[in-house]
Nucleic acid binder design. Structure first.
Lengths: 151, 151
DNA sequence: GCTGCTTTTGACTTAGAAGGTCAAGAAAGT
DNA sequence: ACTTTCTTGACCTTCTAAGTCAAAAGCAGC
């Protein structure tokens, strides 16, 4: 139930790519902008490339850029690319698990958890993130005092 | 963004404890009921005990039972006991992270994710889980076809 | 066709967590 | 006493997180 450094880095780097729409950005510059270890970042960018989220050119005027428009890439796309499927239980998707005894309805709970995660992650695009103009649902959720309280 | 085996086991064992309200249940029986490795289960039960969720007595008529009524224990309580805080980013709570550059609004996204996780986990009690009478929000979320689709 | 610059890739490392197992000790009942 | 059952600590194996290092390959400009 936690977000890895890798996923956090990946989203931050993608946000910078989304913001600078013209021309490729070098890995080194991305690393500086978001304070991410360079070598680690390039591994992450490579994974994003394999998933068709980012493109790259090497050489003197090379660098990385988004493969798709910023409003067509969601946070969920990026998290899935580097962390794998969202909300798996014991490394299996919740709809495939069979529970016994009095835990029978636990499956529904995990399905609900996943649905609620998706409700946020699949509806925030990189364009939303960069502009700060987040979807109504997110604005609503962060609006409450309680959402900011540790626990 | 995944649920560990430990958390899944913990909730399942707690559900059995919630169902059999009178008298302690032995670790061995819990392990059989939910098909959990015994030694591992007892470690989990010990953690639950340290967090005041479960009580235990040893000896001939010993076993484990819930420390509180089943409708006063939420799934979130159990997950926190064995996995630590929910939805931490890079092992830190999202409200304490400072983002730079174009990732500035990422904090709000993680806050929204946590709020939506809490919305499910903090409102389902063990009593709900055992009876199968889950809160309206959960029923609503699992009602959609889409929630059951892998992705 | 060099020469730099930059991405790409693979091998390796180190630390910690996940998911267990084993065995000794302590307490409670009969 | 003796057995049952929890309690605790030590240990183990496999994986993942989070990197580092170094070599290879591609591209641009002279």
């Amino acid at each position: 139930m936690r977000v890895s450094a890798k996923a956090d880095y990946a989203v931050r780097a993608a946000a910078e790519l989304a913001a600078e729409a013209d021309g490729p950005i070098k890995g080194e510059r991305l690393a500086e902008l978001q304070d991410i270890p360079l070598q680690f970042l390039e591994h992450i960018l490579l994974e994003l490339k394999h998933h068709g989220i980012v493109r790259a050119r090497r050489g003197a005027k090379g660098g990385y850029w988004l493969a798709k428009p910023a409003d067509a890439v969601t946070i969920a796309d990026i998290v899935r690319a580097v962390e794998g499927p969202i909300a798996h239980v014991q490394s299996a998707p919740p709809e495939s698990i069979e529970y016994r005894g009095h835990a029978e309805h636990l499956q529904e709970v995990w399905i609900a958890v996943r649905a609620n995660l998706r409700a946020v992650l699949e509806h925030v695009t990189l364009a939303d993130l960069v502009s700060g103009d987040l979807p109504p649902l997110v604005a609503e959720l962060t609006g409450s005092e309680d959402a900011w309280a540790p626990r």
